[in-house]
Every structure is written in structure tokens, then in C-alpha cells.
């Protein structure tokens, strides 16, 4: 499965997922009330140097903000219209900074590490008698379902084509594919129960 994680060895990869998550929370809370453009720009430079320190083509990872350019343009336009162009610039720089910082965590941390950090963070609920296993099971089930759904839709499409169905009406296949997927979910549920359920064999 595709992931935004970027395998590499850098100082950032070596930190624990939970620590990075906490650090991101604190930094976001700190940045949120800032309104000084100069300060935000220097923080952005700092952030860019962190990308640079990730090794070669580390800086290229900053491209995640590029697709958002229509939003940035709109923000600048709205603020220009209200006569506060600087406030618009502040809002744009702040948003770019926050997204880039969060992206640092995403590209340097494996999903599995983040999930275990989350499970660890949820330890208090296990004291109340809840289990974090259904959560982990749901996450892995969902990730596994995605390619299966794509495959299912592809099979329906091939059958439709073999019967001479018109290509432009292929959206009609959504319903049979959905019913097929729901049947599959029922089977998966029964199989899980048969194999000892969410809590596994004890």
C-alpha cells in the first residue's frame, strides 16, 4: 500500500513516534497565536533547514504545499479586498509552516510506529476494561479492504464489458459492486468470529 512515509535514515527518523507527535502538538500550540510576519518567516526558514537536514532531496519533500496554491491565492485576495494584505500573508505563511511541520512527522514515521504510539497513548482506557485491539484490527482491515474494493469494481467492469455493456454507463456497476463488498464484509465478520473474534484465542 502506498504511504507518505519516506524511508531513509536521518536524525528525525531515529526519534520515537510518540515523542514526535507530542512535539508537533506543542509546536502547533506555540505557533498558533503568532501574528508577526518576521517571526513566522524565520520559523519557516528554520523548518526548511530541517527539511534540508534530511539528506538529499529532503527539500523536495516541501512540495506537499504546492497543490494548495489556489487556497493561498484566495486567502491573499480576500485579505487584499478587506484592506489587510499583511494579515493575508501572515495567514498563508502560518498555514504553510504548520503543514510542513506536520509533514515532517508523516514522512519520517512509519504508520505502524504511529499506530503503536497511539495504542500506547490509549493505555489509560485499558485500565477501564476497554481494549485497543478492535482499533488496531479495524485499521488493518480497512487498509486491506482498499485494494480489494478496487479489484472488485474491476471484476464487475470486466464482466460488464464482456456482456457488451456501454462504457459510459459503467457507473451503474457501483451498486452491484457495493452489494458484493457488503457480502464480503459479512463473510469477513463471520470468519473473524470463527477465529476467536476481536480478542483472539485465549
Amino acid at each position: 500500500m502506498i504511504s507518505l512515509y519516506r524511508p531513509a535514515s536521518s536524525w528525525l527518523h531515529n526519534h520515537r513516534a510518540g515523542h514526535k507527535l507530542l512535539a508537533l502538538c506543542f509546536v502547533s500550540i506555540f505557533i498558533f497565536p503568532l501574528t508577526s510576519l518576521a517571526l513566522l518567516l524565520s520559523l519557516l526558514m528554520l523548518c526548511a533547514s530541517m527539511y534540508l537536514s534530511l539528506g538529499k532531496d529532503g527539500l523536495a519533500e516541501m512540495r506537499v504545499v504546492v497543490p494548495l496554491w489556489p487556497w493561498f491565492l484566495m486567502m491573499l485576495a480576500f485579505h487584499w479586498y478587506s484592506g489587510e494584505p499583511v494579515a493575508g500573508l501572515v495567514a498563508v505563511v502560518k498555514m504553510v509552516l504548520m503543514i510542513l511541520l506536520a509533514n515532517l512527522l508523516t514522512l519520517s514515521t512509519r504508520q505502524s510506529d504511529l499506530l503503536s504510539a497511539l495504542q500506547q497513548g490509549l493505555t489509560p482506557i485499558t485500565w477501564l476494561g476497554f481494549s485497543t485491539r478492535p482499533l488496531a484490527l479495524s485499521v488493518s482491515l480497512m487498509i486491506r479492504y482498499i485494494p480489494v474494493l478496487v479489484l472488485l469494481l474491476g471484476q464487475h467492469r470486466q464482466a460488464w464489458r464482456a456482456r457488451g455493456g456501454a462504457e459510459r454507463r459503467k457507473w451503474l456497476l457501483v451498486v452491484p459492486a457495493l452489494i458484493g463488498a457488503l457480502r464480503l464484509a459479512d463473510h469477513v465478520g463471520e470468519s473473524l468470529t470463527a477465529r476467536g473474534g476481536v480478542s483472539g484465542f485465549r
Binding site: 479495524s138 482491515l141 479492504y145 478496487v150 464480503l184 464484509a185 465478520g189 463471520e190 473473524l192 468470529t193
Partner: peptide, 24 residues
């Protein structure tokens, strides 16, 4: 009275469906 497992399977399916629709 669906079992927990069936509920989880259904919830995961719809979550995956939303993801698959985003890939279209």
C-alpha cells in the same frame, strides 16, 4: 444483534469505500 466482528468488518468496509472513492 450483529456480532462485534461483523460490525467492525462493516465499519472498516465503509471507511475503505470512502478511501476508494477518493482514489477515483
Amino acid at each position: 444483534n450483529p456480532s462485534t466482528e461483523r460490525t467492525i468488518a462493516q465499519i472498516a468496509l465503509y471507511a475503505a469505500l470512502i478511501a476508494a472513492l477518493g482514489l477515483l
